Simulated scan of single mutants.
Amino acid sequence: MLKRAVDPHALDATALLKRAMGPTGKPAKVKTTAPVGVWLSEDGTVRLDIFDDGTYDGQVAGRKRHAHGTYYIDGATMTLSDDSGLYTPVALGEGGLEMAGYHLSPAGC
């Protein structure tokens, strides 16, 4: 009889539900509307400008090419669709955004 290997990093349904729910057992609050404005990483190397017309412009220090394109929101995830065909998921959280390992906060905060 063959046994299936178990991925130690895989989450079962209970673990996924706990992750989706806050520590109080209530759904975690997430932003579900477009976070229009300027967002910056703590070190200032990443800037994301989100516009209310469904477009965005992104800049990363040291890169000549700026990313720009459109975005759409599905629940707690905003997906950036670059003009070059690249898709980047952005987690929408209360007070900040998570994108490619960076935490972005509203500019001026």
Rank of each mutant, 00 (worst) to 15 (best):
V90P: 02
S81N: 14
V30H: 15
P106D: 02
L16M: 14
A34W: 00
Y56R: 11
L17R: 15
G54Y: 05
D52C: 06
D57M: 15
V90A: 03
G44C: 05
L40A: 06
L97S: 06
L92Y: 12
T45C: 05
H66C: 03
V38T: 14
A10C: 01
L17I: 02
H9P: 00
L80P: 11
G54I: 01
R19P: 01
E42L: 10
V36Q: 01
T33K: 13
P23L: 05
T77R: 08
L104D: 05
R19L: 14
L86D: 03
M21Q: 15
G58V: 02
D12I: 00
F51E: 13
G96A: 08
Y102W: 15
A61R: 14
K18F: 15
V6G: 00
K26T: 01
G58Y: 10
G85K: 06
R65A: 12
R4P: 05
W39F: 05
A34E: 01
K26M: 08
G54V: 00
V46M: 11
V36K: 03
G58H: 08
S81R: 15
H68V: 00
L97G: 06
I50C: 08
H68R: 12
G37R: 09
G96H: 14
D49R: 05
G58L: 10
L16T: 00
S105G: 11
A28G: 12
V6N: 00
T24V: 01
G44R: 07
M21H: 14
A28F: 03
A13R: 13
G58E: 07
G85I: 00
R47F: 09
E94G: 04
A28N: 13
R63G: 02
T24Q: 15
E42R: 14
A28L: 14
L86A: 05
T55Y: 04
S105I: 04
M21L: 15
W39H: 07
R65C: 03
A91Y: 11
V60R: 15
V36S: 03
G75R: 09
S41T: 03
A76E: 04
T79Y: 04
L2V: 11
Y87T: 07
H68F: 13
P27M: 07
G44M: 03
A28M: 12
K64N: 09
D82V: 00
G37S: 09
P23Y: 07
G96S: 12
Y102E: 08
H103L: 09
H9I: 02
P106R: 13
R19G: 07
V60P: 06
V90T: 07
Y72W: 01
D7C: 10
L40V: 11
G101C: 09
K29E: 10
D7G: 10
T70L: 03
Y56V: 00
